[in-house]
Computed example of a mutant assay.
Amino acid sequence: MTDSAVTPQASDQYVQSLARGLAVIRAFDANNPVMTLSEVAARTDLTRATARRFLHTLVELGYVRTDGKTFALTAKVLQLGYSYLSALSLPQLAQPHLEQLSLKLGESTSAAVLDGPDIFYVARVATRRIMNVGITVGTRFPAYATSMGRVLLAGLPQAKLEAYLTTAELTPLTPRTVASVPDLRAAVERVRTQGWCLLDQELEIGLMSIAAPVWNHNNGDNVAAINVSLQAQAVAAQPDSAKYLDHVRQEVVATANAISQDVSAKH
Rank of each mutant, 00 (worst) to 15 (best):
T109V: 01
V64T: 09
A10Y: 05
T167W: 00
L37W: 07
D118S: 04
T50K: 04
F28V: 07
W215K: 09
L170Y: 14
P33H: 06
S241N: 12
L37T: 08
Q233T: 05
S260W: 08
K266A: 12
D67V: 00
L245N: 09
L22G: 08
A232Q: 13
N31Q: 11
L88V: 00
L161K: 02
L93Q: 12
M1E: 04
L198K: 11
V223E: 04
E39C: 01
T74S: 11
P182G: 02
A237P: 02
A265F: 15
S147A: 15
T174D: 08
R124L: 14
G138C: 11
L165V: 06
A179D: 14
V125I: 12
L80G: 15
K266G: 00
L90I: 11
R176T: 01
A186W: 08
R129G: 13
D115V: 05
S102M: 06
L153W: 12
G155R: 06
A87T: 08
L101Q: 01
V252R: 06
S4P: 00
A258M: 01
L184P: 05
M1L: 05
S102L: 02
T127V: 14
S108C: 08
S260V: 01
G81C: 07
Q250R: 15
A154K: 04
K243T: 07
L88C: 04
A232H: 15
S260T: 02
P8C: 07
Q261M: 01
L170G: 13
S83W: 07
Q92P: 00
A112T: 10
H267V: 13
Y63S: 06
L198C: 07
R192H: 06
S260D: 02
V113M: 02
V113Y: 02
D221S: 12
A232S: 15
T174S: 05
A42N: 09
T177S: 13
L98Y: 06
Q238N: 03
T2C: 01
Y14S: 13
L46Q: 09
Q95Y: 13
L199W: 07
S83V: 04
N218G: 13
R20V: 03
V252W: 01
D67K: 04
E162G: 03
R48W: 00
H217Q: 01
D29E: 01
V191M: 08
R124W: 14
A258I: 01
A254G: 05
L153M: 07
T66H: 08
Y14D: 15
Q250V: 02
L199E: 15
M148F: 10
L61K: 13
A224S: 05
E39V: 06
A187F: 08
R20C: 05
V214R: 02
